[in-house]
Computed example of a mutant assay.
Amino acid sequence: MSAVTWHYGYRYPASRSISGGRFGTSALEYDKFRPHYPSELFDKFEALGPVHVLDIGCGTGRVALPLIDRGMNVLARLGLGLEPDARMADVARSRGVPVEIGTFERWDDAGRRFDLITCGAAWHWIEPEEGADKAAHILRSGGTLARFINFRLLDDHALASFDAVYSSYAPEVTTDGRPPSYLDADDPVSTSTSSSGTRSHVLRSIREFSTDEWLGMIATLSDHIALGSERLGALLMVLRDLTDNDFDGRLRVTSCTHVVLPRAFEEPVALVLYLHFESVLTSLDSPAMAWAAELLLLTCAYCSVGRVDSP
């Protein structure tokens, strides 16, 4: 493998120490300031009714906990999180999420299989080909691999103002707030032989960040952490003055979540109907009723799989 491989819009580093220890130095700040994922996303997961769930790169539990809050208490019994940083994992464990330490590629699944694999803001730390093969291996038939990551969009005035600061204090760091390159990037999971294809979409909402919220959030980004405490502190000081004085301490931000799901996930309601009627088919005594239910079952299957293959 070469030193770096572009995937999902981020550089995959040859040294795993970057992801395996960097965020843990500020685990509580990460948990406090990183934006949450939209409830709409978890509604989709809940509709599938998964029994065994694996959350890759679970961090402090920001994906696992909303699933548990939706009544998926099974996650705490039969599911688990996988996290390379012990300090991040400790925060998740303190909230009731079972976590195993390790990188996804090297993790021993011990024969366990999953209905749903989630990966929030972590897939770019995984070696692309190995990750795709591993996910296909541990997913049950019909299981779902859901990958998603948040990003933010600032208006042109804010971007120009911030760019001027970054060019002086951190020219190697990209200003947070512009469209990410991974929206148009090739996806090795989609093109792997074990995949039936994927589709991506972006969930959007408008929110305001206070100066403290914005600076707290960007201070947890890996490229900002890499600046070191002295350079990062100087950058944040200038950005604080700029945000307070030029934007009255409030930034209007388009908050986005880029979601990559299997094609068959595009019709969650049909999938729920499919699973429901599949479970009751064997309880029907009348051959005519069983035939009608079988027809409805096939219709649901067509809606949940075949329909999304059209452009």
Rank of each mutant, 00 (worst) to 15 (best):
Gly228Ala: 04
Val97Asn: 04
Ile68Pro: 05
Val238Lys: 15
Phe23Thr: 05
Glu278Pro: 00
Gly61Arg: 06
Glu100Trp: 00
Leu28Lys: 11
Arg204Ala: 11
Trp123Asn: 02
Phe42Trp: 03
Pro180Ser: 02
Trp125Tyr: 05
Pro38Glu: 08
Trp125Gly: 03
Thr211Ala: 12
Val253Pro: 03
Glu278Asp: 08
Pro38Val: 09
Met217Phe: 12
Ile138Arg: 09
His36Lys: 10
Ser200Asn: 13
Glu130Ser: 14
Leu236Met: 12
Val253Tyr: 02
Ala160Leu: 10
Ala14Phe: 01
Val272Gln: 15
Ser195Asp: 14
Glu208Gly: 02
Phe265Arg: 03
Ile117Phe: 05
Phe114Glu: 05
Arg204Asn: 09
His36Met: 09
Arg263Ile: 15
Tyr8Ala: 15
Phe277Asn: 03
Arg204His: 06
Asp223Glu: 10
Thr282Val: 07
Cys303Pro: 00
Val272Pro: 01
Thr282Arg: 08
Leu232Tyr: 03
Leu75Ile: 08
Leu67Tyr: 00
Asp184Asn: 12
Leu242Gln: 08
Pro311Asn: 09
Lys44Gly: 01
Phe45Leu: 14
Cys58Trp: 04
Arg240Ala: 05
Ile225Val: 14
Gly21Tyr: 01
Met1Gly: 14
Val269Phe: 11
Tyr8Ser: 13
Leu80Asp: 00
Phe265Met: 12
Val91Phe: 02
Val260Lys: 09
Asp285Trp: 01
